[in-house]
Design a protein around this nucleic acid. Structure first.
Lengths: 205, 205
DNA sequence: GTCTATATTCCGATAGAC
DNA sequence: GTCTATCGGAATATAGAC
């Protein structure tokens, strides 16, 4: 049997257990309110071990957020097909990911971003460069409108995630995914492809 | 000069200064991350004085949130007039309030609700019983649909507030209010009054 | 009414034993 | 690789002097 070269970073099972506990605790409380002690307790290990593996809390968070889901794999399925159905496919994919175990990282990132500028930057970059840019780049609309269209889409999807996973306001919090798809998809479709009304000039226009 | 009866709760100017500083700090950092020390420093007073006036941090937050704005005064202007314009009037009012100094309390409540279940309940109750219920009660739609319509409206408005005031994603963060009104109003209007598509049965439908 | 001093608790991080 | 012990810091809240 070939001996592996390089360093072996401890028991991989323990490491994975810590990361899973971290995602769970970060998702429940956000970055600031999560303590390494609580994460260690949830993983059934000693707090010092968390430092041993990940150095500090920032590194632990970054490692735990390393996408359990990759937009580069998922988005092509959204972007191919009838352009008039892109809104529906995007909302359906969005809910499928956030309702899955992988969604825990999303909730953690969203919750953290609200009280922590450092994680807010992470969220912005992920949303803009990993998701919105890929969705928008093949649309047949005025390129000057893309930033506004993109942030409008983000506002509705982030708002949906806030209601369903963070603030937990019914009936959105407990609705069947398809019910939300049919309700929200037309909004996303309009933000993406419908003609935007003329914008009024800034003040004395 | 008539002597006032009852207890006089200290220097009213100092008290107001503390409340204003509290709203500002709570809006910047959310409830959990805000410290009484930081609020006291911002108000230019001693931390112990904050306890003297308000007892504890919870009471301080509650007092600071006591609506600087009353939906019962503002909403009638939104609800009267052309039913097809209610979405536009609602979004315009929403942005006017949140862009004003009174919006500080809203940002504080929203930021806090994300990491703190106690303040999240406050937010839910305010949104549902003070705003949504009043907006929905005079609509000419199937009453069974009202909760879904209401939470859909909330999802878009909260998402808009998240983008503009919390995560600060451009161009929504810096756009002129009227540009957002024209872009978002049709969404709100549809959630409020347009026929909802048939909802699919739960699973093996 | 205002402030000093402190009791109490809990955090992240480190040093070092085994 | 794992855990014990602890350092240094900051928080809420209270007691009590002025």
């Amino acid at each position: 049997m070939a001996r592996r070269t390089g360093r072996r970073p401890g028991n991989p099972g323990t490491r994975e257990a810590i990361l899973e506990a971290a995602r769970s605790i970060f998702a429940e409380r956000g970055f600031d309110a999560s303590t390494i002690r609580a994460i260690a307790a949830a993983a059934g290990v000693d707090p010092a071990l968390v430092h041993h593996y990940f150095g500090n809390k920032d590194q632990l968070f970054l490692t735990a957020m390393q996408a359990p889901v990759d937009p580069r794999e998922l988005l092509p399925k959204v972007l191919t097909g009838d352009p008039e159905g892109i809104g529906e496919r995007l909302v359906r994919m969005f809910l499928a990911v956030w309702d899955s175990p992988a969604g825990t990282a999303g909730v953690a990132l969203l919750r953290s971003a609200v009280s922590n500028e450092w994680t807010a930057r992470l969220l912005r970059e992920f949303v803009v460069t990993q998701v919105l840019r890929r969705v928008l780049e093949n649309l047949d609309v005025d390129p000057a409108e893309l930033p506004l269209r993109g942030s409008l889409v983000a506002s509705q999807l982030i708002g949906l995630a806030m209601m369903r996973y963070v603030v937990r306001l019914d009936p959105i919090a407990t609705a069947a995914p398809e019910a939300l798809v049919t309700a929200v998809a037309p909004t996303i479709q309009r933000y993406l492809t419908a003609p935007l009304p003329d914008q009024p000039a800034s003040s004395a226009g």
